[in-house]
């Protein structure tokens, strides 16, 4: 009996199927909101699910010169990374399924797995567009990853714990967004970079390089990558909401806070123009990193006093 419960929690709730469904729902919400901001009708509620089912049913074409093992396994690793990361965050306002001291770092690296997999997948297929897309994807990782990490470590230091569950409990009594607004902004914008949303969608700028790193993917592989991205959206939003927006103590608060964040993200996506990759790097290293370091400085000074 003791082994069945963890398995259930992995496969059905809060991980596994529920998370996938949640990911698709959030993806739909994002698309729908963006569509409304752009004065379009937008997709119907089941559109992301329909896309996934269709892609899963389609034939997967593996390019001749690509490494077949990598080609098929990379999407799975990306999805697995996202699903595993979900175990350590307070999804749906529940306590994290698992937790240990330092799981914040592990979660952040599991979330980066998607980007790394996409970069590898792009270089694996030898397609021109994929190569350029992969180069841009990896360049982008190096620009936003450090500030994003630093922005999420500030609350950890403030709360005195590197365990997401404990930070979230601490955050319930301290709205860190008020105390550390810069960290919050950097974390949120870093999440957009991670998810390659406009204005950070240069790696998949379809007017330049078709679908970027994933140009050669069709069928199952593409479906898994898309699912991984959807899962990462939910996990990322949960993480930012739990840490900065006063924790997510119950499902209602979880919904309210993550959807408010999603609304903000959709608004930013609708308002801004795509940045060139050099502009992205410049933005992160010139402003993002400096700002977050200043926030650190303030934190250190306060602690000293």
């Amino acid at each position: 009996m003791n082994t069945i419960l963890p398995l259930l929690s992995l496969a059905i709730f809060p991980g596994g199927l529920t998370l996938l469904a949640g990911g698709l729902a959030y993806e739909w919400a994002d698309r729908k909101l963006l569509a409304l901001f752009q004065n379009r009708v937008g997709p119907r509620w089941f559109q992301p699910l329909a896309d996934t089912v269709k892609l899963l049913a389609k034939e997967e074409i593996i390019p001749d010169r690509a490494n077949k093992f990598l080609f098929t396994s990379l999407p799975l690793i990306a999805l697995a990374g996202g699903l595993t990361a979900a175990l350590y965050v307070p999804l749906a306002g529940l306590r994290p399924a698992y937790g240990f001291s330092g799981d914040l770092i592990v979660t952040l690296y599991l979330l980066s797995l998607l980007t790394l997999c996409m970069g590898l997948a792009g270089t694996n297929t030898l397609d021109r567009f994929s190569m350029i897309g992969a180069t841009r994807t990896l360049t982008q990782v190096f620009s936003y990853e450090a500030p994003f990490l630093l922005a999420l470590l500030i609350p950890a230091v403030t709360a005195g714990s590197w365990q997401i569950g404990e930070i979230a409990t601490y955050a319930q009594s301290h709205w860190l967004v008020v105390l550390q607004p810069v960290g919050f902004v950097v974390a949120l914008v870093g999440l957009m970079g991670k998810l390659e949303m406009t204005p950070f969608d240069a790696p998949e700028a379809h007017t330049e390089i078709a679908a970027g790193a994933l140009t050669e993917y069709s069928g199952r592989g593409l479906a898994f990558f898309r699912l991984a991205k959807a899962v990462e959206l939910v996990v990322g939003l949960t993480l930012v909401a739990a840490i900065y927006l006063g924790g997510v103590s119950n499902p209602l608060w979880f919904l309210v806070k993550t959807l408010a964040l999603l609304l903000t993200l959709a608004g930013i996506q609708a308002l801004l123009t795509r940045l060139r990759i050099d502009q992205t790097v410049g933005l992160w290293w010139r402003y993002g990193t400096i700002l977050v370091l200043l926030q650190w400085l303030v934190l250190i000074l306060i602690r000293r006093i």
């Binding site: 901001f37 752009q38 004065n39 406009t198 700028a205 007017t207 609708a270 801004l272 123009t273 795509r274």
Partner: peptide, 13 residues
């Protein structure tokens, strides 16, 4: 042009 630059909102409007 806005679409080519990745500014789809202007494109739609």
């Amino acid at each position: 042009s806005a679409h080519e630059a990745g500014f789809d909102t202007l494109f739609m409007y």
